[in-house]
Every structure is written in C-alpha cells, then in structure tokens.
Amino acid sequence: MNWNTLLFVIFPYLAILLALVVTVYRSLTRPFTISSLSSQLLERRKLYWGSISFHYGIVIILSMHLLALLFPRGLLWWNSVPIRLYLLEFSGLALGFWSLAGLAVLVWRRLSEARVRVVTTPMDGVVLALLLVSVITGLWMALAYRFGSTWFTAVFTPYLVSIFTLQPRAELLAPLPWVIRLHVFNFFLLLVAFPFSRLVHIITLPLGYLLRPWQIVIWARRRDDRRAYS
C-alpha cells in the first residue's frame, strides 16, 4: 500500500461509485435539478466567447480521449506517419488553448458581472478550479511530454481497462511526471464533483437535437424588430 495505490486505485473506485450512485439518486429524487444552471439570460456577450470556445474545445478533446481508449490501434495507425501525428497534436493543442481561453473568460465573467456573481455558488468555484487544473495540466503535458496521443494508448488505455476489469495496474502511472499524475487524479476529483454540481448536466447529452425534425419558429412581429431580438 502506498500513495500510488491510494490515489490511482482506491480513490478512482470511490469516485466512480460516488458519481454513479449519487447521479442516479439525484435524477430519481430531484430530476429537475439536473441542469447546467444557465445564466445566459443574465449576461450573453462574455458567455458567447467563454462558453462556446470552452465547450466545443473540451467536448472534442474529451471525445479524442474516449477514442484513444476505445480504438488504441486505430490511433497508433493514424500516428504511424509523422505528419499525421503532428497534425493531430497541433489540433489537440489548438483546441486545448481555445478551451483554456474560454474557461478564463468564464471565470472573468463570473467575477466581473454582478448579476452572475449573485447566482454563483461555492460549488461553481470548485468546478471552475477543477476544470482549470484539468485543462492547464493537459496543455502542459501536450507541450512538455509529447506525444500524448501515442503514449496514451500505452499507459492510460491499459490503466483504464485495468480499472474497468477490476484488475487495477496503478504501477503504470507511478513513474510518470507529477503533472501527468495530477491530470489523472484531477479527473477523478471531477468525477466526485460531478453529481454534486452543475457538471451533472453532461448526462443530458442533447443528441436528440441531431435527429429531431426541424422546428419552424414564426415571429409575430414586424420584420424590423426581428433582428433586434435575435
């Protein structure tokens, strides 16, 4: 038993368990609290620059993590030609910086806008701090410990598979630099925060919008007004 086992075996299982149980409990007992607690009605301009860049950036990057977990061989095949590897790494970095800039705008908005500040809970601060750590350590790794897109498949794919198959192999993480281990540990902290915070809105994944029929919105106003309201 050592710190490595505590942080990367025991804590992850507790985090996963907590995230699952509390999310189910919350959606059964308080379904209407499953919300992103949008403050768009209170402030829109900073939200546009912050939310769009953060969300698109983080969703694409998270999907790439998931793809690396599900199709490690496909990823290694893509990376087997250096120019493709560089392209993937540059894109990931661009999305990471985009996401970080968006997050910074969101923090600034929450601090500078009085109306937004009023509806801010301590948990919002926790979520923002955890997300900042996650994105900053991720960028740090992408810049200092290249090439994550390749070594993810050798370290984190087997590690995560070992967690899911209940045969944890934390020794894979033990020799890695602390920034990388912080990135992983912080992910499990996010899992713990998940069911207790606005992060829970992730489970509402709005994929239905991709398949539903178009909705036609008809404005019952004069043409000139329409622009001002949209």
Binding site: I52, S53, E89, F90, S91, A94, F97, Y229
Partner: peptide
Amino acid sequence: FWFWGLTGMALLFAGMVIFWPRQRL
C-alpha cells in the same frame, strides 16, 4: 508546438467572429 497551438486557437476564435453579431444583444 506553442506556435501552431496558439495559431490554431486564434483561427478558432476568428471563426467565432462570424457568428458573433447574432449573439450581440
């Protein structure tokens, strides 16, 4: 890597400018 990362971010923000006017008010 710094250069292409930051340039890519600038391009993405530039892309957002196209959609900006509709979010103005």
